[in-house]
Write a protein that binds this DNA or RNA. Structure first.
Lengths: 155, 155
DNA sequence: AAAATTGTGGGTAAAAGTGGCAAAAAGTGT
DNA sequence: ACACTTTTTGCCACTTTTACCCACAATTTT
């Protein structure tokens, strides 16, 4: 569904344009209704089509109430989610409260992650990319630290 | 059902406005009848539609009588619950007795947790968020401490 | 080079939140 | 039992924020 990364400027009101190639798709798949929230592991935001988001929300809601980490996840990820609608000019307004979390300023990068999108500040994106570059190969060489699912990934 | 967080001012009488996007939903799903009580683990209040609350109450009532922790839960959570009705202007009155538990003053945050809502003081909410922020990632990296349900959550 | 498509910015109108006020209800004391 | 006080509830008006719309600028395509 979504792939590739696009550099995009956020305007003074905190709006960002959705790349044209995604617009028809979004209109079709979710009537341009999206949900934005914080990412659980990285300083970026996640943007998903509403139906896709609902699946996730249901899974989280089904976790046992005594699962502390699950509670935390629900509280902060679901609790800070926000419904968005793509406007007439193909833009979305990024909520003020979330901009801080991902340290967003003018220059953003929109990253396709198949079922969803990630919104990074250009600075964080570049930092993360460079940091990972080195780690990455080291981890790939260390078969012990790899999950079974990943070990068996065919390509 | 409920998601996202809204900053809301409690007025001098202890009333808070329910965000408009929830009003029609609440009217439909529970005739705007809600139940408010303390959260069992965190310094905040829980607000649920009556039917949703009843399900929870049933589950708690079904716990073995010799389950001390369950007894305690029932006594304090169910025992301090209170029925509320959304008023004509879309507001609820937060019971005086519960305000102390969650240290509520003027500035509140209403947090959507799928089936229910949480009411936090702005101060507690921010504190909790920042505190967790750090813990959070550390725990996520430590796969051992994670429940299977959470480990296998795909997203 | 011109036209069309996409990106950007700003202004305006509508809606939502907030606080204050007044009326009603409940409680208390004589 | 009645009147006075106090709390609660409902209503209304003001202010602020949000979203929608339109116009212009930039870039790309024919």
């Amino acid at each position: 569904m979504f792939r590739g990364s696009d550099p995009i400027n956020m305007d003074a009101k905190g709006r960002m344009a959705i790349p044209t190639r995604y617009r028809a798709l979004l209109d079709e798949v979710c009537a341009s209704e999206l949900v934005i929230t914080i990412d659980m592991k990285s300083p970026c935001l996640t943007l998903s089509p509403l139906p896709e988001w609902k699946k996730f929300e249901q899974k989280v809601a089904a976790l046992p109430a005594m699962d502390d980490l699950g509670e935390m996840l629900s509280r902060f990820v679901v609790g800070q989610a926000k419904d968005l609608q793509v406007d007439g000019s193909g833009r979305i307004l990024i909520p003020t409260e979330l901009r801080g979390y991902a340290a967003l300023d003018k220059k953003l990068v929109l990253v396709g992650r198949t079922q969803r999108l990630e919104i990074w500040s250009e600075a964080n994106w570049n930092a993360e990319r460079e940091k990972s570059q080195d780690n990455y190969r080291a981890i790939l060489l260390d078969k012990e630290s790899m999950s079974d699912a990943l070990k068996n990934l065919s390509w």
